[in-house]
């Protein structure tokens, strides 16, 4: 079953009189449980594509479906609701709220979803355990290493059992050991929970974990390798 489908998606940024065509007509379908990597040179449109799939931005033209629903027709609040319920995000920078502990960061999407205290507590500890940080639950981001922060971000992305997790350069600021550890955790969670993961990356370490590689260049999909297996 398809998780997301893009048809003829374009995204044009206009700065003054200058138009930049970030995406020039993308057609792409991502199915349930995929572990897909978007690759391509800088400026190829990887991040823009992730943002559009993640309902953080609206396309200039074309349609984007999430579980069959055309998300381009949704207003700002409806898109926020959709992100809250169905999409998890992992960013390149360690995007945690600095004033909250690891526990509270993971808890935040659950709070926004209105889950009760008991369920929240169980879920947060389950996720922190899954990323190997249950003993660091009450540390704030500045008390955690980069790798630990990114693992908290992974736990947060999965908090609400989303159908789709989007990760933009998740290992870019990590050393090899931490980068591998984060990728292995995500791969394990993908296999165990069946959650679909889409990564945008330059990092060969990430690419080697992907089961499917979509290559972008100048805003177009130039290669769509659906048979990629882990080396």
């Amino acid at each position: 079953m398809e998780v997301t489908k893009l048809t003829d998606v374009t995204r044009v940024y206009k700065i003054g009189e200058v138009e930049t065509h970030a995406l020039r007509g993308i057609n792409l379908t991502i199915g349930d449980g995929e572990f897909t990597t978007l690759v391509g040179p800088s400026g190829s449109g990887k991040t823009t594509l992730l943002q559009l799939i993640g309902c953080l931005d609206q396309p200039t033209s074309g349609s984007i479906y999430l579980r069959g629903e055309d998300v381009t027709r949704l207003n700002r609040n409806q898109r926020a609701d959709l992100r809250k319920a169905k999409i998890g995000f992992i960013f390149q920078f360690f995007a945690l709220i600095p004033t909250l502990t690891a526990y509270e960061n993971v808890e935040m999407p659950l709070l926004l979803s209105g889950q009760n205290n008991g369920r929240r507590k169980t879920r947060v500890m389950e996720l922190l355990d899954a990323v190997g940080l249950s003993d660091r639950a009450h540390h704030r981001p500045d008390q955690l290493s980069g790798g630990e922060q990114q693992r908290v971000a992974v736990a947060r992305a999965l908090a609400t059992n989303p159908v789709l997790v989007l990760a933009d350069e998740p290992t870019a600021n990590l050393d090899t050991a931490n980068g591998d550890q984060v990728m292995e955790i995500m791969q394990k969670l993908n296999q165990e929970t069946g959650t679909t993961f889409i990564f945008a990356t330059h990092d060969p370490r990430v690419i080697k974990y992907a089961r499917r590689v979509v290559t972008l260049c100048d805003g177009l999909v130039v290669e769509n390798n659906t048979a990629k297996k882990k080396d």
Partner: peptide, 16 residues
């Protein structure tokens, strides 16, 4: 600003 972007990304609404 970026922190608010994160909160918005994970589903926080304008009124929140």
């Amino acid at each position: 600003t970026r922190e608010m972007g994160i909160l918005t990304a994970i589903g926080m609404k304008g009124r929140q």
